[in-house]
């Protein structure tokens, strides 16, 4: 069983890295032939950096749209972020002081994460127009994340697992030195679902993670009159080549 999980995580890791890498490569190499920033837009690259940060960190546009979706969505994402950081302790030989400090409060982030996810799930089911746009996978993602959260909470607060062994297992993965995993139900479910998430991420709507940074509507500088912007394929068009010159 431990070998199976070790193999699963090794595969999941590489699928995630390669899959996501290929997708990001595709986004980078696909040209944006026209200037289409959503205006008012920043006039400088620094401005664009702030704009993207505001979107990625505070979900600024979602806030404008709908306070409930924003509340649940932001709660979930920020909690997940804290939870992920806390999980670093399984991968670092020596746990730094700040991580220990963060952990003392951060362990409750798992609860807020689940609350956010449940809120999103309830909205998806209860609001007819959101139910209309939901596919089975949209529900499944929320359920998967909720179960990951609940199994995590279970291990942390109720049925403790042998975290020393878990840490040995995790560090062993890094060096292909596979170690034994405690065979607890919650842990096995938790890890299996995390691996599934990692494997499916590059093939799913979770591509919004890189996608948010690649939307030309938000990542372009508003300077079309000052700087001519032309894509490679556009340069090969007939009109471009036969352009009248003064």
């Amino acid at each position: 069983m431990s070998e199976f999980y070790a193999l699963l995580f090794t595969v999941a890791f590489w699928v995630l890295i390669i899959g996501l890498g290929l997708k990001i490569y595709q986004y980078i190499k696909t040209p944006a032939p026209l200037k289409i920033p959503l205006t008012p837009a920043p006039l400088t690259k620094t401005g664009v950096g702030f704009r993207l940060a505001k979107e990625a960190i505070f979900f600024a546009s979602l806030f404008k749209s709908n306070k409930w979706i924003w509340l649940f969505g932001w709660l979930f994402h920020m909690s997940l972020f804290i939870v992920l950081i806390i999980h670093l302790r399984y991968f670092l030989e020596t746990v730094p002081e700040w991580l220990v400090m963060l952990q003392s409060v951060g362990k409750y982030a798992a609860f807020t994460m689940v609350i956010g996810l449940v809120g999103l799930l309830v909205r998806r089911i209860a609001v007819p127009r959101i139910r209309y746009i939901s596919d089975p996978s949209d529900y499944l993602w929320l359920i998967l994340l909720i179960v990951i959260g609940i199994t995590g909470i279970t291990m942390r607060f109720f049925s403790h697992t042998d975290i020393i062994s878990v840490k040995a297992f995790a560090i062993g993965l890094e060096s292909f030195n596979w170690q034994q995993l405690p065979l607890d139900g919650p842990l096995l479910i938790h890890l299996a679902l995390v691996a599934i998430l990692m494997i499916l991420l590059p093939f799913s709507k979770l591509l919004h993670i890189p996608g948010i940074f690649f939307a030309p509507t938000r990542n372009q500088v508003d300077n079309p009159r000052e700087q001519r912007h032309v894509s490679k394929w556009a340069l090969n068009l007939e009109a471009e080549k036969n352009k009248k010159q003064p």
Binding site: T30, S61, L62, N66, G73, R123, R129, I130
Partner: peptide, 24 residues
């Protein structure tokens, strides 16, 4: 078009069906 327009390629992938746009 997917290979010529980053906007289209990214927008096809990145919708999370959150519903923010549904009433706009």
């Amino acid at each position: 078009l997917l290979s010529r327009y980053r906007s289209l390629q990214v927008f096809m992938d990145s919708c999370i069906k959150c519903g923010a746009c549904t009433d706009k």
